[in-house]
Design a protein around this nucleic acid. Structure first.
Ligand SMILES: Nc1ncnc2c1ncn2[C@@H]1O[C@H](COP(=O)(O)OP(=O)(O)OP(=O)(O)O)[C@@H](O)[C@H]1O
Length: 705
DNA sequence: CTCGCTGTTATTTTT
DNA sequence: TAACAGCGAG
């Protein structure tokens, strides 16, 4: 059996995989086989050391990575592998908390987990209740303050006016969560840690159980995750972590790069293994990666070499605007798949922010290129899916006020603001959840007849579903729900959304024997990968963050513009620019053979068109690794003011020739100042304030010479 | 209570 | 642009 677990490894990898007892860190650059080492280590433990799979805990960064790891483990160790605990920190904690729910203070085993949307909803009602002005306390801002606080040990706030109010708000908010039998993603870790530290019995049970703890992407762990891993591995001292400090890109979420930098100090006697051979990328791509990351101070220096061929130079492309950039991407992809031996699935397009996918999608659609968005605004975040989930949650946990508010009037059933205000008053007065308050009002006839009728019908629906859920599979419950509230009718002719709901239903049918509670957990952690289209022949679109740990033969990084990559916001914060650079580093090191970096000189956003500069990161690339290209666009200016006269202008960069604030002269209107640029290409329109004749809109190509 | 209109405002990354 | 909050009419 050992043949399997040790095959296909180089000497350093072998050293790590066959490591004996005690903590070990694999510190190595991209594409050096760190993830492969973890998979083989798991197989080695099972096949060669006969470690029972149930005693192995393997933590990955995303659920997608967990699924991949499970698959790899199964390939190497067979069916035994299914007993391993593999998952993200969050899903492992969730699993433990559900099992040990009896030991929790405040939560019962039916607790639900709130995602950001739900949290915002709850926070908004807290702000209202405490009468905090939303101007000073924007819900989003407050939530990220909370996050930041929880990522500091002790969840404390600054000791000034704002900090004190935040602290008050935080305590209130946390109590409200517990009241609703709900917790946040962060709570999963915080409460798991609390359970382990306060309940010796439980703690010892898990410490005994997990004789082997493995953590992938260790550079992106935060305090709680660090504590969790440390606690669980304390007894057997077998903590096996892999990572690369140069790929730490989640500092904004509390990840602490010092966890990996201080590993040897934290775990005395730790062994450190370095992997220096890169199996993934061409020499050229490694050269680029190196010139990018070289600029960051304070890294752990790592050698990286490869036997791979030099490969082609990366193409740096300057597009006219983002639509043009999308066109470029589409053209190149078509070329790769048409003339070289690339499949659609060999190609990936990365961007800094989700909103950038839109233009790219349009470009790919126009070129009939099949694509798939990996994560992004996930399937399970869509409004129609969340509606259905909210019904189910309320069925499981009637204390869930956020879900109650979400669907109490969806589809519209004449329960509006007035009724809700009364319900809220009743719930506050009596310490009830809204659902209970509704029941109370119903019993005591506390509302106008019309509202009461509507409310009663709603309560009936939820209760009916509740009893259905006791005896019937989830899919049946969903079906009953959809019929009962005529949800598909409510969606009307929006076919896509109706289709999404049907997809959720068929997902539920796939898990036939599942309980409602387990279904909700799965949905919470599910990724788009679970929807079964991952194997299909499609180009992958994703954010750079989502690309971590993946690899593709051909990689396009779009929007390599200043203020976008590096993004302006983090670049202004301490250490933010370094993290942005690591992000760019992660992006380029995903590529195996071909790398395309593109940027647009004009960006259309929020109604206007703005100039953008190329990213400073591009300046760091050595000329011998890259080729530069830019679009020379022919603009045909057909101005209705000048009928039948077709002019063609050769323009390399329209934007440079015309921008707000610039002085222009028009034969009829005389001199003026450009106020605003709208549209693009030959439809670009300049709004010009003429000194004599006032503000006029002029086709931009008119000035283009 | 619902619907539709207008004006404002915003785009970082995710478990 | 587009998503959304706020407002007034039915
Ligand atoms: N010993 C080896 N022989 C052949 N190929 C290998 C070997 N080790 C790793 N590889 C290949 O190298 C590629 C990168 O491996 P892997 O994803 O494990 O690297 P990694 O260090 O986790 O990368 P990253 O840090 O970028 O996520 C994979 O395609 C893997 O199959």
């Amino acid at each position: 059996m050992s043949g399997n677990s040790l095959k296909g490894l180089n000497p350093s990898q072998l050293e790590a995989v066959t490591h004996g007892e005690g903590p070990l860190l694999v510190l190595a650059g991209p594409g050096s086989g760190k993830t492969r080492v973890i998979a083989h280590r798991i197989a080695y433990l099972i096949n060669d050391l006969s470690v029972p799979p149930g005693n192995i805990l393997a933590v990955t960064f995303t659920n997608k990575a967990a699924a991949e790891m499970k698959k790899r483990a199964r390939d190497l160790a067979g069916d035994l592998a299914s007993g391993i605990w593999i998952g993200t920190f969050h899903s492992i904690c969730l699993r433990i908390l559900k099992i040990e729910a009896d030991f929790l203070e405040g939560h019962t085993k039916d607790f639900v987990v709130y995602d950001q949307d739900d949290q915002l909803g709850l926070l908004k009602s807290c702000l209202k209740e405490l009468d905090y002005g939303e101007s000073l306390f924007s819900p989003k801002g407050v939530l990220s303050e909370f996050d930041a606080a929880e990522n500091r040990e002790g969840a404390s706030f600054r000791d000034d006016f704002y900090g004190r109010r935040l602290s008050e708000l935080y305590d209130f908010y946390k109590k409200e969560l517990v009241k609703r039998n709900a917790m946040t993603f962060n709570d999963l870790l915080l409460l798991a840690n609390r359970l382990l530290s306060e309940n010796q019995g439980v703690c010892v049970r898990y410490q005994d159980r997990f004789s082997q703890v493995l953590v992938d992407e260790y550079q992106d762990t935060n305090v709680s995750q660090y504590r969790f891993a440390k606690t669980l591995s304390q007894r057997h001292r077998n903590l096996f972590v892999v990572g690369d400090d140069s790929q730490s890109i989640y500092g904004w979420r509390g990840a602490d790069i010092n966890n990996i930098l201080n590993f040897e100090k934290d775990f005395p006697g730790a062994r450190v293994v370095k992997l220096e051979r890169n199996y993934r990328s061409t020499l050229n791509i490694l050269g680029i990666a190196n010139s990018v990351i070289r600029k960051n101070p304070g890294r752990k220096e790592k050698t990286l070499w490869t036997d791979n061929p030099e490969g082609e130079r990366a193409l740096v492309f300057k597009a006219l605007d983002n639509a043009d950039e999308a066109r470029f991407v589409a053209e190149r992809i078509s070329g790769l798949v048409g003339t070289e031996d690339f499949k659609w699935s060999d190609v990936a397009v990365f961007y800094r922010a989700n909103f950038q996918s839109r233009v790219i999608e349009e470009g790919l659609r126009a070129a009939k290129i099949p694509y798939r968005i990996v994560s992004g605004v996930g399937f399970y975040q869509r409004a129609e899916i969340k509606d259905v989930i909210a019904y189910l949650r309320l069925v499981q946990n009637p204390r869930d006020d956020v879900s109650f508010l979400r669907i109490v009037n969806v589809p519209p059933r004449k329960i509006g603001g007035v009724t809700l205000r009364k319900l809220r008053e009743a719930s506050q007065a009596g310490g009830f959840a809204l659902f209970e308050a509704a029941e109370y009002c119903q019993e005591h006839d506390l509302l106008p007849a019309q509202a009461l009728g509507a409310l009663s019908r709603f309560l009936e629906i939820i209760k009916g579903l509740g009893s259905a859920a006791e005896s019937q599979p989830v899919a049946r419950v969903i079906k009953a729900l959809l019929e009962r509230v005529a949800y598909l009718d409510y969606l009307g002719e929006d076919l896509q959304r109706a289709e999404n709901v049907r997809e959720l239903l068929s997902a539920a049918e796939g898990w036939s024997e599942i309980t409602l509670s387990d279904f909700l957990d799965l949905v919470l952690l599910a990724t788009d990968e679970d929807r079964g289209d991952s194997g299909e022949e499609k180009v992958s679109l994703m954010t750079i963050h989502a690309a971590k740990g993946l690899e593709f033969p051909a990689v396009f990084v779009v929007g390599v513009n200043e203020d976008l990559l590096p993004h302006r916001r983090p670049a202004e914060t301490l250490g933010g620019l370094e993290e942005e650079r690591r992000l760019f580093y992660v992006a380029v090191t995903r590529a195996k053979r071909l790398l395309y970096l593109s940027y647009a000189s004009l960006r259309t956003a929020s109604g206007g068109t703005y100039h953008t500069r190329r990213s400073a990161f591009l300046d760091d690339l050595s000329p011998e690794h890259v080729v530069y290209e830019s679009r020379k666009k022919k603009l045909s200016g057909r101005d209705s003011d000048l009928p039948s006269e077709e002019k063609t202008y050769e323009l390399e960069d329209v934007g440079l020739n015309l921008r707000p604030g610039q002085k222009v002269t028009h034969p009829t209107f005389g001199p003026g100042i450009v106020k605003k640029i709208d549209g693009k290409g030959d439809k670009m329109v300049a709004t010009v304030d003429f000194f004599g004749s006032g503000v006029k809109k002029i086709l931009a190509s008119f000035f283009a010479d």
